[in-house]
Design a protein around this nucleic acid. Structure first.
Lengths: 217, 217
DNA sequence: CGTTAGTTTGACCTAATTCAAATACTGTGG
DNA sequence: CCACAGTATTTGAATTAGGTCAAACTAACG
């Protein structure tokens, strides 16, 4: 492991960025590819990404994987209705994550209207993201899917033209409901068409935002 | 229209089944295929199905449609983070729907912890449904998708063996990310294999639940 | 009953997958 | 800092699941 084993800090920022009185948590580091929780495990904690990136996914019997969501700094994940996690969560690169007991957190939501409202808002935003994901998977072509992801990644990191892509091509494929080969070919084609350039595997430059946006409605 | 125009009743059950003090609403009837709200319209009300069935969907520029969810008696829909609806909602068959002002409803959630908790729970359940939908669309084959829908419909109506399917083949296709022809061929094949029988178009008998369940993990 | 819309079936096609191989990275230890 | 080993990515060729186009059939409704 090229990264320190998970460690704990006593003082940590409040969960969900509540300035004062938010449910505080414990900061934990995860190494690249390290599991944060597994599908089926008790959902005792909720999580917020402080730095790095996290993927949550489900696996079918025969190994097919579907990534449910990519979580970046500020994103929260791991909250469930029932008592068990419905996905597996893993750090994509070395990441720091804020962890709080779910019970502490829901107690706080029960007591404070603003926390409850914020929790509901975050949950609804996650639900809307999944709604977009459903449209993408149900009705978009391979190139539309790839472009949607690129523009989404750009938007989520402040809309720079030079994108740092933290995840592998396999991760992209498993998020987009495609194969790694199709993702690769599509990116190559977009480069050939002058829409993007790919200086390195994990870096993609958006060369023609308007045309890209036009591809996905 | 074979159905009465929407009408209003003064006295209506409480929204979300809260026994006393729940945000009460107004009961409205919608005829088959009638629109309840359109994508982009102000999201001023929230809705709960009392009888019948409702579909919510998005449409892409070129007309591709993705059904986000089917809502049956007890299901709620139309709640948004922002000020506008992100989907269009239509009655599938003649349906009655309970309608409440969103503001009234969120005010109540602010004042009463139990209402806030219930709202969060319902929102999270909807989000989990979409998560399953994402896995279905991203990684399942046509027959797995169709079988998943059949078993889901059965489960949601108390797991009878004889299913009353309220929606058209086109609706099924647009929910499953398939074409109407593929849905039809898949159903025919399932019948040929003895897994189901299709006495009428809108009625499907599950003949071998164990084998069907086995097809979808 | 007749008309119209919804569904099924058939033949053919294509976007994306699969299988296979070449190429390019990345991290690690010397 | 460089070379090597292992992994990730790209590219190519062949295949296929599901889509498209078209026509026949069926059911619902006035």
């Amino acid at each position: 492991m090229p990264f320190d084993a998970p460690f704990t800090e006593v003082h940590a920022p409040a969960l969900f960025g509540n300035p004062e009185g938010g449910a505080s948590g414990v900061k934990i580091r995860y190494a690249r590819e390290e599991e944060i929780f597994g599908e089926g495990e008790p959902a005792e904690y909720v999580y917020q990404v402080l730095s790095g990136a996290v993927r949550t996914y489900r696996i079918l019997r025969d190994g097919r994987r579907q990534i449910d969501e990519f979580h970046f700094a500020g994103g929260y994940f791991g909250m469930e209705v029932g008592s068990a996690h419905r996905t597996t969560a893993e750090a994509i690169g070395n990441s720091t994550v804020l962890v709080a007991r779910r019970a502490t957190f829901t107690d706080m939501a029960d007591q404070r209207g603003d926390v409850a409202r914020q929790l509901l808002k975050l949950t609804m935003e996650g639900s809307q993201r999944r709604q977009d994901h459903v449209v993408l998977l149900g009705r978009k072509s391979a190139s539309e899917r790839v472009v949607s992801l690129l523009l989404d990644l750009a938007e989520r990191s402040g809309s720079p033209s030079v994108l740092d892509v933290p995840m592998s091509r396999q991760d992209m494929a498993d998020y987009l409901g495609l194969t790694i080969e199709t993702v690769s070919r599509t990116l190559t084609q977009l480069q050939t068409d002058g829409m993007i350039s790919i200086p390195t595997t994990r870096r993609i430059v958006l060369r023609n935002r308007a045309a890209l946006a036009d591809m996905i409605e």
